[in-house]
Design a protein around this nucleic acid. Structure first.
Length: 201
DNA sequence: AGTGCGATTGACT
DNA sequence: GTCAATCGCACTA
């Protein structure tokens, strides 16, 4: 789509605030390195969870679960939603400030066969459309909580220089507190974006 | 200590 | 469209 090889993003390239990071990450790439192979996909959808935002897991005190949200920008915050699904977030504010960006959907680019095995489905559209599906496809679990996504670890953020997508905005999906804030971003018209149609125009 | 509720998904009517 | 699964954590007492 762009021709450039995928390279790792560096900390210094990440925007310094949560909303800017949520927009910046659209079109970037998540890479997962496993002994069985390399998995990758283009980020099609994100949501911002801000300081002072009642929907943010860091809204209350720091706990063992949410501590990764307080790390410097570019670290993974992984947690279990509804006791069933893992969610991948990127910490987004200066160290000590709890905030993050939820990665909600990927357009698979590499390692499709392995993603299919992880997910138990074959349809490309269903592999990583939705945050829980995305984590399952990439085999992301609590063992990755707190790792540096701009480091040398097995899960990292990259770019291939692609910058062609129009970014749409909407309210966030599946929350009840601070539910009317426009903090969801997605690649307009991309079939790998999750969520109801009315939010994807 | 007990209760209620999610940043979801998949199965089912 | 409805609904259960499943568990960490906030909240009440």
């Amino acid at each position: 789509m762009s021709g450039e090889p995928v390279r790792r993003l560096e900390h210094g390239e990440l925007p310094a605030d949560t909303v800017s990071l949520a927009r910046f990450l659209i079109g970037k790439i998540v890479v997962r390195e496993l002994p069985e192979g390399v998995l990758g996909g283009r980020i099609a959808e994100t949501e911002a969870y801000l300081p002072g935002d009642a929907a943010c897991h860091a809204f209350r005190a720091r706990t063992p679960r949410n501590r990764s949200l307080f790390l410097a920008p570019g670290h993974a915050y992984v947690y279990i939603a509804y006791g069933t699904s893992f969610m991948l977030n990127v910490s987004s504010e200066a160290a000590g400030i709890g905030a993050g960006v939820l990665i909600r959907a990927l357009a698979p680019l590499e390692g499709v066969a392995l993603m299919q095995r992880h997910r138990g489905v074959t349809r490309l559209l269903d592999l990583a459309r939705g945050p829980g599906r995305l984590a399952a496809a990439l085999r992301i679990d609590l063992g990755l909580d707190g790792i540096d996504l701009c480091g040398a670890g097995p899960l990292w953020l990259g770019t291939d220089g692609w910058d062609g997508g129009e970014i749409g905005e909407s309210i966030r999906i599946g929350i009840t507190r601070d539910a009317d804030r426009v903090l969801r971003f997605y690649l307009r018209g991309n079939p790998f974006v999750s969520g109801p149609k009315r939010l994807n125009r």
